[in-house]
Simulated scan of single mutants.
Amino acid sequence: MKTTLSVLMLSLLPGLALAAGEHGHHEGHNAASMQQSMHGVGRPGQPAEVSRTIAVDMGDDMRFIPAAIEVKAGETVRFFVKNAGKLNHELVLGNLAMLKEHADMMREMPGMQHAEPNMLSLKPGQKGGLVWHFDQAGTVDFACLIPGHMEAGMTGQVQVVQ
């Protein structure tokens, strides 16, 4: 009986860990709510439609370089992101309200891992890419949502012009 119970408990642990650690699986943050909160921000882009690549550096000074980016409405860009620091950092695209809400969640669940197309998490020295289509004029914010980073000023904006 003890062996069966132990095996059962061990087989459930990976699933429980994933449920607690993945952004796409926590309460109140499903695909439908993500789509609604992404209105006006754009959508994941297709690599074949990329018109240009924008290099973005993240550092332990809690800044993005550049922090101000301009794109055209209808443009699909690749963000080539480099973590030049010694801490983990991330780039998350969204509107300011969504980013603040997500940052609050990150404070409550600091081990949470990102699994959404508008997010890129990088360890020190890592590089990565994110392809995004900006479908309408306006402002799209981005930030590092690791607890304390956004509050320290690790934010930026994409101005989407006609």
Rank of each mutant, 00 (worst) to 15 (best):
R63G: 06
G156D: 05
K123R: 15
E70P: 02
A32G: 07
H133I: 01
V41Y: 01
G153Y: 07
K123H: 11
S33C: 03
S6R: 08
T4N: 08
L99W: 05
V71Q: 05
E75I: 00
M150L: 15
E101Q: 15
L13F: 14
H114W: 07
Q36M: 09
L8D: 10
K86S: 15
M9D: 03
G59A: 11
L5Y: 12
A67S: 15
E90L: 11
P117R: 05
N88H: 13
V56H: 08
V140H: 02
A137D: 04
G42M: 06
Q113L: 14
D57V: 02
V41G: 00
G153V: 02
E27A: 11
R52S: 07
F142M: 06
G21C: 11
F64E: 00
K2S: 08
G128Y: 05
I146C: 02
F134P: 06
N30M: 02
A17H: 09
G138R: 05
N83Q: 07
P66F: 07
F134T: 00
V81T: 09
I69T: 00
H149V: 00
K82Y: 12
H102D: 10
K127T: 14
K100C: 02
N83A: 01
G21H: 10
L8R: 09
T139V: 13
V56G: 08
W132E: 06
V56N: 11
G42H: 03
S37N: 13
V161G: 05
R52E: 09
F80N: 14
M98R: 08
S51F: 09
A32I: 09
E108T: 09
I54A: 01
V71F: 11
K100A: 04
G153N: 09
K72H: 13
S6H: 05
A55L: 03
D104H: 13
Q159R: 15
A67H: 15
K72R: 14
R43F: 04
I54L: 12
Q36I: 04
E90F: 06
D135N: 15
V56K: 07
C144H: 07
G129N: 14
A17R: 05
H114A: 14
V158H: 03
L91G: 01
I65T: 10
E49W: 12
L5A: 13
E101W: 12
A84L: 10
A84E: 12
G111P: 02
G24C: 05
V7F: 09
T76M: 02
G85P: 03
E116V: 08
H23S: 13
